[in-house]
Design a protein around this nucleic acid. Sequence first.
DNA 1: GGCGCGCGCGCC
DNA 2: GGCGCGCGCGCC
Length: 374
Amino acid sequence: MEYEYREILLLTGLEEITKKELQRFKYFVMDEFKISRSQLEETTNRTELADLLIQSAGPALAVTKTIHLFQKLNYMHAAKCLQEQKKKVESQSMTNRKKKETQQVEKRSQAESCSGASATSRGESSKKNSAPEVHPQAKPQKQQTVAEQEAIREGLQKDPLAVLVLKTTNPFKCETEEDIFHVTVATATAFFFVKVLYAPFKDKFTPRRTIKISNYLWHFNFLEVTSSSIVVDADTDLKVCVPNNLRQKAGRTPTIKMLKTQPCGTIVNGIFKVQKITEKQKDRVLYGVEDKTGEMDVLVLGNQDKIKCETGDKLRLVFFEVSEDGEKTQLKSGPYSFFKVIKSPKPKTEQKEKFTLKSTHLNNTSLKDSNTAS
DNA sequence: GGCGCGCGCGCC
DNA sequence: GGCGCGCGCGCC
Protein backbone atom coordinates (compact mmCIF):
# COMPACT_ATOMS: atom_id res chain seq x y z
CA MET A 1 0.00 0.00 0.00
CA GLU A 2 2.72 2.40 1.03
CA TYR A 3 4.64 1.45 -2.03
CA GLU A 4 1.66 2.15 -4.31
CA TYR A 5 1.26 5.61 -2.84
CA ARG A 6 4.94 6.31 -3.36
CA GLU A 7 4.61 5.13 -6.92
CA ILE A 8 1.57 7.18 -7.87
CA LEU A 9 2.90 10.28 -6.16
CA LEU A 10 5.98 10.12 -8.29
CA LEU A 11 4.58 8.76 -11.53
CA THR A 12 1.15 10.25 -11.81
CA GLY A 13 1.68 13.19 -9.53
CA LEU A 14 5.00 14.90 -9.86
CA GLU A 15 5.75 13.74 -13.36
CA GLU A 16 2.43 14.91 -14.66
CA ILE A 17 3.49 18.55 -14.27
CA THR A 18 6.06 20.58 -16.19
CA LYS A 19 9.34 21.90 -14.80
CA LYS A 20 7.84 25.35 -14.39
CA GLU A 21 4.79 24.00 -12.65
CA LEU A 22 7.08 22.00 -10.40
CA GLN A 23 8.90 25.15 -9.34
CA ARG A 24 5.62 26.79 -8.35
CA PHE A 25 4.54 23.62 -6.61
CA LYS A 26 7.75 23.55 -4.57
CA TYR A 27 7.12 27.07 -3.39
CA PHE A 28 3.76 26.08 -1.91
CA VAL A 29 5.12 22.80 -0.53
CA MET A 30 6.96 24.66 2.23
CA ASP A 31 3.71 25.80 3.76
CA GLU A 32 1.51 22.80 3.09
CA PHE A 33 4.04 20.21 4.20
CA LYS A 34 5.91 22.34 6.72
CA ILE A 35 9.18 21.68 4.98
CA SER A 36 12.01 24.17 5.26
CA ARG A 37 13.36 25.92 2.20
CA SER A 38 16.83 24.48 2.78
CA GLN A 39 15.48 20.91 2.89
CA LEU A 40 13.54 21.57 -0.26
CA GLU A 41 16.53 23.01 -2.03
CA GLU A 42 18.50 19.88 -1.29
CA THR A 43 16.25 17.83 -3.54
CA THR A 44 17.65 17.71 -7.04
CA ASN A 45 14.98 15.68 -8.81
CA ARG A 46 11.37 14.56 -8.64
CA THR A 47 12.19 11.28 -6.93
CA GLU A 48 13.98 13.00 -4.06
CA LEU A 49 11.14 15.49 -3.77
CA ALA A 50 8.60 12.65 -3.60
CA ASP A 51 10.65 10.99 -0.88
CA LEU A 52 10.81 14.21 1.08
CA LEU A 53 7.04 14.70 0.84
CA ILE A 54 6.43 11.13 2.02
CA GLN A 55 8.94 11.51 4.86
CA SER A 56 7.18 14.62 6.00
CA ALA A 57 3.53 13.58 5.75
CA GLY A 58 3.49 9.81 5.31
CA PRO A 59 2.58 8.23 1.94
CA ALA A 60 -1.21 8.53 1.96
CA LEU A 61 -1.31 12.06 3.31
CA ALA A 62 1.48 13.13 0.97
CA VAL A 63 -0.70 12.13 -1.98
CA THR A 64 -3.75 13.90 -0.54
CA LYS A 65 -1.79 17.07 0.13
CA THR A 66 -0.29 16.97 -3.34
CA ILE A 67 -3.75 16.71 -4.89
CA HIS A 68 -4.83 19.64 -2.75
CA LEU A 69 -1.88 21.74 -3.88
CA PHE A 70 -2.42 20.84 -7.52
CA GLN A 71 -6.00 22.05 -7.20
CA LYS A 72 -4.87 25.24 -5.50
CA LEU A 73 -2.38 25.89 -8.30
CA ASN A 74 -5.03 25.07 -10.88
CA TYR A 75 -3.19 22.00 -12.25
CA MET A 76 -6.58 20.44 -12.64
CA HIS A 77 -5.54 17.68 -15.00
CA ALA A 78 -2.70 16.51 -12.78
CA ALA A 79 -4.95 16.75 -9.75
CA LYS A 80 -7.62 14.68 -11.46
CA CYS A 81 -5.19 12.01 -12.62
CA LEU A 82 -3.62 11.69 -9.18
CA GLN A 83 -7.02 11.52 -7.55
CA GLU A 84 -8.07 8.76 -9.92
CA GLN A 85 -4.93 6.77 -9.22
CA LYS A 86 -5.39 7.23 -5.49
CA LYS A 87 -8.94 5.92 -5.72
CA LYS A 88 -7.66 3.00 -7.76
CA VAL A 89 -5.07 2.11 -5.13
CA GLU A 90 -7.65 2.39 -2.37
CA SER A 91 -10.32 0.31 -4.09
CA GLN A 92 -7.69 -2.22 -5.13
CA SER A 93 -6.60 -2.79 -1.56
CA MET A 94 -10.27 -3.12 -0.62
CA THR A 95 -10.98 -5.72 -3.30
CA ASN A 96 -7.75 -7.54 -2.50
CA ARG A 97 -8.83 -7.83 1.09
CA LYS A 98 -12.36 -8.94 0.15
CA LYS A 99 -11.04 -11.43 -2.38
CA LYS A 100 -8.80 -13.00 0.21
CA GLU A 101 -11.74 -13.41 2.52
CA THR A 102 -14.03 -14.98 -0.06
CA GLN A 103 -11.17 -17.11 -1.30
CA GLN A 104 -11.03 -18.91 1.99
CA VAL A 105 -14.73 -19.70 1.78
CA GLU A 106 -14.82 -20.53 -1.87
CA LYS A 107 -11.59 -22.20 -2.92
CA ARG A 108 -12.61 -22.87 -6.47
CA SER A 109 -12.78 -19.31 -7.64
CA GLN A 110 -12.55 -19.04 -11.37
CA ALA A 111 -10.51 -16.20 -12.78
CA GLU A 112 -13.29 -14.14 -14.26
CA SER A 113 -12.54 -12.12 -17.32
CA CYS A 114 -10.51 -9.11 -16.28
CA SER A 115 -11.53 -5.74 -17.56
CA GLY A 116 -9.82 -4.80 -20.81
CA ALA A 117 -8.09 -6.98 -23.37
CA SER A 118 -4.56 -6.05 -22.39
CA ALA A 119 -5.30 -6.78 -18.78
CA THR A 120 -6.54 -10.24 -19.70
CA SER A 121 -3.55 -11.01 -21.83
CA ARG A 122 -1.28 -9.72 -19.11
CA GLY A 123 -2.96 -12.04 -16.67
CA GLU A 124 -2.39 -14.92 -19.03
CA SER A 125 1.19 -13.97 -19.61
CA SER A 126 1.99 -13.75 -15.96
CA LYS A 127 0.53 -17.22 -15.60
CA LYS A 128 2.51 -18.50 -18.55
CA ASN A 129 5.67 -16.94 -17.27
CA SER A 130 5.29 -18.30 -13.83
CA ALA A 131 5.96 -21.69 -15.39
CA PRO A 132 7.94 -23.95 -13.07
CA GLU A 133 11.28 -23.56 -14.82
CA VAL A 134 11.20 -19.79 -14.42
CA HIS A 135 10.32 -19.56 -10.76
CA PRO A 136 9.81 -22.83 -9.04
CA GLN A 137 8.07 -21.38 -6.00
CA ALA A 138 4.97 -20.68 -8.08
CA LYS A 139 2.09 -23.12 -7.75
CA PRO A 140 0.86 -23.70 -11.26
CA GLN A 141 -1.74 -26.28 -10.23
CA LYS A 142 -3.85 -23.76 -8.43
CA GLN A 143 -5.56 -21.22 -10.60
CA GLN A 144 -4.75 -17.69 -9.57
CA THR A 145 -7.56 -15.42 -8.50
CA VAL A 146 -7.95 -12.00 -10.03
CA ALA A 147 -6.71 -10.47 -6.81
CA GLU A 148 -3.54 -12.52 -6.94
CA GLN A 149 -2.98 -11.57 -10.55
CA GLU A 150 -3.42 -7.92 -9.64
CA ALA A 151 -0.89 -8.33 -6.88
CA ILE A 152 1.55 -9.69 -9.42
CA ARG A 153 0.84 -6.92 -11.83
CA GLU A 154 1.44 -3.85 -9.70
CA GLY A 155 4.66 -2.73 -8.09
CA LEU A 156 8.08 -4.29 -7.71
CA GLN A 157 8.48 -7.69 -9.36
CA LYS A 158 11.30 -9.81 -8.07
CA ASP A 159 10.59 -12.93 -10.11
CA PRO A 160 12.13 -13.12 -13.55
CA LEU A 161 9.96 -12.50 -16.58
CA ALA A 162 11.09 -14.05 -19.84
CA VAL A 163 10.42 -11.86 -22.87
CA LEU A 164 11.45 -11.53 -26.47
CA VAL A 165 12.88 -8.12 -27.38
CA LEU A 166 11.05 -6.73 -30.39
CA LYS A 167 12.28 -3.19 -30.77
CA THR A 168 14.41 -0.60 -29.00
CA THR A 169 15.11 3.10 -29.33
CA ASN A 170 18.58 4.54 -29.01
CA PRO A 171 19.39 5.98 -25.58
CA PHE A 172 18.52 9.65 -25.22
CA LYS A 173 18.61 12.28 -22.50
CA CYS A 174 15.15 12.71 -21.09
CA GLU A 175 13.72 15.71 -19.28
CA THR A 176 15.17 14.56 -15.97
CA GLU A 177 18.64 14.51 -17.59
CA GLU A 178 18.89 10.72 -17.26
CA ASP A 179 20.07 8.63 -20.22
CA ILE A 180 17.21 6.29 -20.95
CA PHE A 181 15.74 4.24 -23.78
CA HIS A 182 12.51 2.50 -24.62
CA VAL A 183 11.87 -1.09 -25.61
CA THR A 184 8.97 -3.15 -26.87
CA VAL A 185 9.00 -6.73 -25.60
CA ALA A 186 6.58 -9.60 -25.86
CA THR A 187 5.65 -12.91 -24.33
CA ALA A 188 3.70 -15.56 -26.20
CA THR A 189 0.43 -13.82 -25.36
CA ALA A 190 1.03 -10.11 -24.86
CA PHE A 191 3.38 -7.27 -25.67
CA PHE A 192 4.63 -4.57 -23.32
CA PHE A 193 6.38 -1.26 -23.51
CA VAL A 194 9.41 -1.00 -21.27
CA LYS A 195 10.98 2.18 -19.97
CA VAL A 196 14.64 1.52 -19.23
CA LEU A 197 16.14 4.13 -16.93
CA TYR A 198 19.63 2.69 -17.16
CA ALA A 199 21.38 3.14 -20.51
CA PRO A 200 24.11 0.47 -19.95
CA PHE A 201 21.35 -2.15 -20.31
CA LYS A 202 21.18 -1.29 -24.01
CA ASP A 203 23.45 -4.25 -24.85
CA LYS A 204 21.02 -6.65 -23.20
CA PHE A 205 17.99 -5.35 -25.05
CA THR A 206 18.92 -6.60 -28.48
CA PRO A 207 16.04 -7.26 -30.88
CA ARG A 208 15.18 -10.96 -31.43
CA ARG A 209 16.90 -11.96 -28.20
CA THR A 210 15.07 -13.69 -25.35
CA ILE A 211 15.96 -12.16 -22.01
CA LYS A 212 14.90 -12.49 -18.40
CA ILE A 213 14.10 -9.40 -16.39
CA SER A 214 13.75 -9.34 -12.63
CA ASN A 215 13.49 -6.63 -9.98
CA TYR A 216 11.52 -4.48 -12.37
CA LEU A 217 8.47 -2.35 -11.73
CA TRP A 218 5.03 -3.18 -13.05
CA HIS A 219 3.12 -0.03 -13.73
CA PHE A 220 -0.45 0.13 -14.82
CA ASN A 221 0.45 -0.41 -18.41
CA PHE A 222 4.19 -0.67 -18.82
CA LEU A 223 7.35 -2.07 -17.25
CA GLU A 224 10.07 0.01 -15.72
CA VAL A 225 13.63 -1.24 -15.60
CA THR A 226 16.06 0.66 -13.39
CA SER A 227 19.71 0.26 -12.44
CA SER A 228 18.65 -2.07 -9.64
CA SER A 229 16.83 -4.39 -12.03
CA ILE A 230 18.46 -7.57 -13.29
CA VAL A 231 18.54 -8.25 -17.01
CA VAL A 232 20.14 -11.47 -18.25
CA ASP A 233 20.13 -13.54 -21.40
CA ALA A 234 17.68 -16.39 -21.15
CA ASP A 235 19.05 -19.93 -21.17
CA THR A 236 19.54 -21.14 -24.70
CA ASP A 237 16.72 -23.68 -24.33
CA LEU A 238 14.25 -21.01 -23.28
CA LYS A 239 12.81 -19.37 -26.38
CA VAL A 240 9.82 -17.10 -26.14
CA CYS A 241 7.73 -17.63 -29.27
CA VAL A 242 5.74 -14.57 -30.23
CA PRO A 243 3.02 -15.10 -32.84
CA ASN A 244 3.27 -12.94 -35.93
CA ASN A 245 0.00 -11.12 -35.37
CA LEU A 246 1.19 -10.07 -31.93
CA ARG A 247 4.47 -8.77 -33.34
CA GLN A 248 2.58 -6.74 -35.90
CA LYS A 249 0.21 -5.40 -33.32
CA ALA A 250 3.09 -4.40 -31.07
CA GLY A 251 4.74 -2.34 -33.77
CA ARG A 252 1.67 -0.79 -35.28
CA THR A 253 0.55 2.79 -34.69
CA PRO A 254 -2.77 2.63 -32.88
CA THR A 255 -5.68 4.30 -34.63
CA ILE A 256 -6.90 7.61 -33.26
CA LYS A 257 -10.39 6.23 -32.89
CA MET A 258 -9.07 3.45 -30.66
CA LEU A 259 -6.94 5.85 -28.62
CA LYS A 260 -10.02 7.87 -27.79
CA THR A 261 -11.43 4.86 -25.97
CA GLN A 262 -8.32 4.31 -23.86
CA PRO A 263 -8.05 5.40 -20.24
CA CYS A 264 -5.95 8.32 -19.10
CA GLY A 265 -2.33 7.25 -18.70
CA THR A 266 -2.23 4.65 -21.49
CA ILE A 267 1.22 4.64 -23.04
CA VAL A 268 1.31 5.31 -26.76
CA ASN A 269 4.01 4.76 -29.38
CA GLY A 270 3.46 5.53 -33.03
CA ILE A 271 3.76 7.77 -36.03
CA PHE A 272 1.12 10.40 -36.62
CA LYS A 273 0.57 12.81 -39.48
CA VAL A 274 0.44 16.50 -38.62
CA GLN A 275 -2.67 18.16 -39.92
CA LYS A 276 -2.08 21.53 -38.27
CA ILE A 277 0.00 23.20 -35.60
CA THR A 278 -2.68 24.49 -33.31
CA GLU A 279 -0.72 26.37 -30.74
CA LYS A 280 2.95 27.23 -30.46
CA GLN A 281 4.44 28.66 -27.30
CA LYS A 282 7.92 28.76 -25.89
CA ASP A 283 7.52 25.72 -23.70
CA ARG A 284 4.71 23.80 -25.37
CA VAL A 285 3.38 23.00 -28.82
CA LEU A 286 -0.03 21.62 -29.60
CA TYR A 287 -0.23 19.61 -32.82
CA GLY A 288 -3.40 18.48 -34.54
CA VAL A 289 -2.80 15.00 -35.97
CA GLU A 290 -5.00 12.80 -38.11
CA ASP A 291 -5.42 9.36 -39.56
CA LYS A 292 -8.20 7.57 -41.44
CA THR A 293 -10.19 7.12 -38.25
CA GLY A 294 -10.14 10.62 -36.84
CA GLU A 295 -8.26 13.58 -35.45
CA MET A 296 -6.73 14.39 -32.11
CA ASP A 297 -4.34 16.78 -30.41
CA VAL A 298 -0.80 16.01 -29.37
CA LEU A 299 0.62 18.22 -26.64
CA VAL A 300 4.39 18.34 -26.52
CA LEU A 301 5.81 20.05 -23.46
CA GLY A 302 9.27 21.53 -23.14
CA ASN A 303 11.30 23.96 -25.17
CA GLN A 304 11.00 23.24 -28.86
CA ASP A 305 12.69 26.19 -30.45
CA LYS A 306 14.84 23.86 -32.50
CA ILE A 307 11.97 21.68 -33.69
CA LYS A 308 10.99 22.42 -37.24
CA CYS A 309 7.67 20.89 -38.06
CA GLU A 310 5.08 21.81 -40.63
CA THR A 311 1.75 20.51 -41.84
CA GLY A 312 2.14 17.20 -43.63
CA ASP A 313 5.18 16.10 -41.61
CA LYS A 314 4.90 13.13 -39.32
CA LEU A 315 5.61 12.87 -35.61
CA ARG A 316 7.28 9.84 -34.15
CA LEU A 317 6.03 9.57 -30.61
CA VAL A 318 7.49 7.17 -28.09
CA PHE A 319 6.10 6.85 -24.59
CA PHE A 320 3.46 9.53 -24.90
CA GLU A 321 0.35 9.07 -22.86
CA VAL A 322 -3.37 9.39 -23.31
CA SER A 323 -4.58 12.37 -21.37
CA GLU A 324 -7.62 14.59 -21.24
CA ASP A 325 -8.07 18.21 -22.12
CA GLY A 326 -11.54 18.96 -20.87
CA GLU A 327 -13.78 16.53 -22.75
CA LYS A 328 -11.27 15.84 -25.49
CA THR A 329 -8.77 13.00 -25.46
CA GLN A 330 -5.27 14.04 -26.38
CA LEU A 331 -1.76 12.63 -26.34
CA LYS A 332 0.67 14.33 -24.03
CA SER A 333 4.42 14.10 -23.60
CA GLY A 334 5.81 13.14 -20.23
CA PRO A 335 9.30 13.43 -18.80
CA TYR A 336 10.35 10.17 -20.45
CA SER A 337 8.80 10.74 -23.84
CA PHE A 338 10.73 10.72 -27.07
CA PHE A 339 9.63 12.97 -29.88
CA LYS A 340 10.90 13.35 -33.42
CA VAL A 341 9.69 15.07 -36.56
CA ILE A 342 9.82 13.06 -39.78
CA LYS A 343 9.87 15.55 -42.61
CA SER A 344 7.56 14.62 -45.42
CA PRO A 345 9.69 13.98 -48.47
CA LYS A 346 9.25 16.56 -51.16
CA PRO A 347 8.29 14.17 -53.92
CA LYS A 348 9.69 14.73 -57.37
CA THR A 349 6.20 14.52 -58.79
CA GLU A 350 5.18 17.53 -56.73
CA GLN A 351 8.11 19.51 -58.04
CA LYS A 352 7.19 18.39 -61.52
CA GLU A 353 3.61 19.47 -60.92
CA LYS A 354 4.81 22.83 -59.70
CA PHE A 355 6.96 23.14 -62.76
CA THR A 356 4.08 22.35 -65.12
CA LEU A 357 1.77 24.59 -63.16
CA LYS A 358 4.28 27.39 -63.32
CA SER A 359 4.73 27.01 -67.00
CA THR A 360 1.01 26.85 -67.73
CA HIS A 361 -0.78 28.88 -65.04
CA LEU A 362 1.77 31.36 -63.79
CA ASN A 363 -0.70 33.66 -62.09
CA ASN A 364 -2.47 30.88 -60.22
CA THR A 365 0.78 29.37 -59.08
CA SER A 366 2.15 32.53 -57.59
CA LEU A 367 -1.09 32.92 -55.67
CA LYS A 368 -0.88 29.33 -54.51
CA ASP A 369 2.72 29.73 -53.35
CA SER A 370 1.95 32.78 -51.30
CA ASN A 371 -0.88 30.82 -49.64
CA THR A 372 1.25 27.90 -48.64
CA ALA A 373 4.02 30.13 -47.37
CA SER A 374 1.76 32.02 -44.99
C1' DG B 1 -29.67 -11.53 -44.81
C1' DG B 2 -27.18 -7.25 -44.95
C1' DC B 3 -24.04 -4.30 -43.08
C1' DG B 4 -20.22 -2.65 -40.42
C1' DC B 5 -16.49 -3.32 -37.53
C1' DG B 6 -12.28 -5.50 -35.96
C1' DC B 7 -8.70 -8.37 -36.74
C1' DG B 8 -5.19 -10.96 -39.30
C1' DC B 9 -2.44 -11.51 -43.15
C1' DG B 10 0.39 -10.45 -46.95
C1' DC B 11 2.36 -7.26 -50.05
C1' DC B 12 5.10 -3.17 -50.74
C1' DG C 1 5.55 -0.48 -40.43
C1' DG C 2 1.80 1.17 -43.55
C1' DC C 3 -1.79 -0.14 -46.32
C1' DG C 4 -5.37 -2.68 -48.23
C1' DC C 5 -7.89 -6.74 -48.68
C1' DG C 6 -10.70 -10.44 -46.92
C1' DC C 7 -12.75 -13.02 -43.49
C1' DG C 8 -15.70 -13.70 -39.51
C1' DC C 9 -18.50 -12.18 -36.02
C1' DG C 10 -22.26 -9.59 -34.07
C1' DC C 11 -25.97 -6.53 -34.42
C1' DC C 12 -30.25 -4.87 -36.54
